Lab assay of single mutants.
Amino acid sequence: TTITITINGEELRIRGDHEEIHKILKAWEEDHNDEEIVRLIRELAER
């Protein structure tokens, strides 16, 4: 699965399995701050 998210003008492409993507979207849905979401995404992007 690949998704693209733009946060603060920075486009981040994430490839991951369903569970990893779900974790990010769940954090977003629960209204975590952008920095935390960006950190989760970067961790995935670095793999």
Rank of each mutant, 00 (worst) to 15 (best):
T1D: 07
T1G: 07
T1S: 09
T1F: 15
T1M: 14
T1P: 06
T2F: 15
T2I: 12
T2V: 11
T2S: 09
T2P: 04
T2L: 13
T2A: 08
I3N: 01
I3E: 01
I3T: 04
I3P: 01
I3Q: 02
I3S: 02
I3G: 02
I3M: 11
T4G: 02
T4C: 09
T4H: 06
T4K: 10
T4E: 03
T4I: 12
T4L: 10
I5Y: 03
I5F: 09
I5Q: 00
I5S: 00
I5W: 01
I5T: 01
T6E: 05
T6H: 09
T6F: 15
T6N: 11
T6V: 13
T6Q: 07
T6W: 15
T6R: 13
I7Q: 01
I7K: 01
N8R: 12
N8S: 05
N8Q: 09
N8M: 09
N8H: 07
N8W: 06
G9M: 03
G9D: 03
G9I: 02
G9T: 03
G9K: 03
G9R: 03
G9V: 02
E10N: 12
E10V: 15
E10F: 13
E10G: 05
E10H: 11
E11M: 15
E11Y: 15
E11H: 14
E11W: 14
E11D: 05
L12N: 01
L12Q: 02
L12W: 15
L12Y: 15
L12D: 00
L12V: 04
R13S: 07
R13Q: 06
R13L: 04
R13P: 02
I14T: 01
I14L: 13
I14C: 02
I14V: 05
I14H: 01
I14K: 00
I14D: 00
I14M: 04
I14R: 00
I14Q: 00
I14A: 02
R15M: 08
R15H: 10
R15N: 06
R15D: 04
R15W: 12
G16Y: 06
G16S: 06
G16I: 07
G16R: 03
G16N: 04
G16C: 06
G16M: 05
G16Q: 03
G16P: 02
D17M: 08
D17V: 07
D17P: 10
D17R: 08
D17A: 09
D17N: 11
D17Y: 11
H18A: 12
H18C: 12
H18F: 12
H18W: 13
H18D: 08
E19G: 07
E19M: 09
E19Q: 09
E19H: 10
E19V: 11
E19T: 11
E20G: 05
E20V: 10
E20K: 05
E20P: 02
E20H: 06
E20C: 03
E20W: 13
E20N: 05
E20L: 11
I21T: 03
I21Y: 03
I21A: 03
I21L: 11
H22M: 14
H22W: 15
H22S: 09
H22I: 07
H22F: 15
H22K: 10
H22P: 01
H22T: 12
H22Y: 15
K23W: 15
K23P: 03
K23Y: 07
K23T: 07
K23A: 12
K23I: 07
K23E: 05
I24P: 00
I24K: 02
I24L: 14
I24E: 00
I24S: 01
I24M: 08
I24R: 02
L25H: 02
L25W: 09
L25V: 05
L25S: 02
L25M: 08
L25K: 04
L25Q: 03
L25C: 04
L25Y: 12
L25T: 02
L25D: 00
K26R: 12
K26F: 08
K26V: 05
K26T: 06
K26Q: 08
K26N: 06
A27V: 06
A27C: 06
A27R: 15
A27S: 07
A27F: 07
A27Q: 10
W28C: 03
W28S: 01
W28P: 00
W28Y: 08
W28Q: 02
W28N: 01
W28K: 02
W28V: 03
E29G: 11
E29P: 01
E29C: 13
E29Q: 14
E29S: 14
E30C: 04
E30W: 13
E30G: 09
E30P: 07
E30R: 15
E30Q: 12
D31R: 14
D31K: 11
D31T: 07
D31C: 08
D31S: 10
D31F: 09
D31Y: 09
D31E: 07
H32K: 14
H32Q: 13
H32D: 07
H32S: 10
H32Y: 09
N33T: 11
N33A: 09
N33V: 14
N33W: 14
D34E: 09
D34G: 10
D34Q: 07
D34N: 14
D34A: 13
E35A: 12
E35D: 08
E35S: 09
E36Q: 08
E36V: 10
E36Y: 13
I37A: 05
I37S: 02
I37H: 02
I37R: 02
I37N: 03
V38F: 14
V38Y: 15
V38M: 15
V38G: 05
V38C: 06
V38W: 15
R39D: 03
R39G: 04
R39S: 05
R39I: 04
R39F: 06
R39W: 04
R39P: 01
L40Q: 06
L40E: 02
L40F: 04
L40K: 08
I41S: 01
I41H: 01
I41D: 00
I41Q: 00
I41W: 03
I41T: 01
I41K: 00
I41R: 00
I41V: 05
I41L: 15
R42A: 04
R42I: 09
R42Y: 10
R42E: 04
R42K: 09
R42G: 03
R42H: 04
R42F: 05
E43Q: 13
E43H: 10
E43L: 15
E43R: 15
L44S: 02
L44I: 06
L44D: 01
L44C: 02
L44N: 02
L44T: 02
L44P: 00
L44K: 02
L44E: 02
L44R: 03
A45L: 13
A45C: 09
A45N: 08
E46D: 12
E46P: 01
E46A: 14
E46H: 10
E46W: 12
E46R: 15
E46S: 11
E46F: 13
R47P: 07
R47F: 12
R47Q: 14
R47T: 13
